[in-house]
């Protein structure tokens, strides 16, 4: 008999503990589900946490409208399989109703507008706890965020007055109108996520694996040609074998050249990678040294 615990077992146990804690202490939790690998792992953990019962909260997708069709197809199929309710919070509707103003120009992105849509959806659905797939290894500002991240009535994060978080005693107390963002994958790295996907044999959208598609280079990143993104003068479209390391808004998520067609090959590739996940693939994080911190303070994920 062995009581040894692997790092994946320890991370899984911790995340499951966090999800059960939220289900027990909050009235209206919701899990953010985009069809990206981190949210896929979160939903998988939620299913394990409450089995054989169904996941006791709905999932929500903040939809910029700039999606990869493979991801939306995956999202709908996966949600139906889990038997959970899907709330779609639409950035397009926020724009149409005048709540958000679309950026203009060839490089316009709806990434920042998501904050308005997210906060409106939290308010109208009266969600009091929102599970996000954020990991502390992703970005410098995230490294300092708590597992339970308190947000005031404006959805803002105040990094200087975070509640101390000791042992596994999470303080979820809040007043009406305030809410808590909960990050069950805080202690996972990109590598842990892929190793877990391999261990649990979890399906992910096909665009995570290498495939050929028309792309062009912008700011040192490969962007996919879609109905929302087209090459500007001087940008040359060519077909390449690529895969996506992150899956987000199509206008600001870059692809990486890759021949990894299996989870095992992706793990090898991640191990050898010399660029961070966000540095390689997220135009939005390159805005400034404090880009993520500023967006988080406004209420971003």
């Amino acid at each position: 008999m062995s009581t040894q615990v692997t790092h994946l077992e320890a991370l899984e146990a911790e995340s499951v503990f966090i999800m059960r804690e939220v289900a027990a202490e909050f009235e209206r939790p919701v899990l953010l589900f985009s069809g990206g690998k981190d949210s896929i792992v979160m939903l998988h953990l939620a299913e394990k946490a409450f089995a054989p019962a169904r996941v006791p909260f709905p999932v929500m997708h903040v939809d910029t409208g700039h999606n990869f069709s493979e991801v939306i197809e995956y999202r709908d199929r996966r949600v139906a399989q889990a038997g959970v309710r899907l709330v779609v919070a639409s950035v397009q509707e926020s724009i149409d109703s005048g709540r958000a103003v679309e950026e203009t120009g060839p490089r316009a992105s709806r990434n920042r507008l998501q904050t308005v849509t997210l906060l409106d959806a939290i308010e109208s659905n009266r969600f009091d706890a929102v599970f996000g797939g954020g990991r502390r290894d992703e970005e410098k500002a995230r490294a300092k965020e708590r597992v339970y991240s308190f947000r005031d009535e404006f959805g803002q994060w105040d990094p200087k007055s975070q509640r101390p978080e000791l042992w596994q005693l999470y303080n979820g107390r809040h007043k009406k109108g305030e809410h808590i963002r909960v990050f069950p994958l805080s202690n996972w790295t990109e590598m842990d996520v892929w190793m877990y996907i391999a261990r649990e044999n979890i399906e992910v959208p096909s665009i995570y694996y290498a495939h050929r598609r028309p792309v062009f280079k912008r700011d040192g990143m490969w962007l996919a040609v879609t109905s929302f993104v087209s090459a500007q003068a001087g940008e040359v479209v060519e077909e390449r074998e690529v895969r996506f390391r992150t899956v987000g808004d199509a206008t600001c998520t870059g692809a990486v050249e890759s021949s990894a067609r299996t989870v095992e090959q992706i793990i090898e590739e991640v191990a050898a990678s010399r660029l961070t996940e966000r540095g390689a693939t997220r135009a939005d994080d390159r805005i400034s040294e404090a880009g993520m911190e500023d967006r988080k303070k406004e209420g971003y994920f």
């Binding site: 490294a143 300092k144 990094p159 200087k160 040294e289 911190e293 500023d294």
Partner: peptide
């Protein structure tokens, strides 16, 4: 990690 830390050259919080 945080802007205030870089500006003041100190570390504010557990990272």
């Amino acid at each position: 990690g945080l802007r205030a830390e870089r500006e003041q050259g100190i570390t504010i919080d557990v990272a």
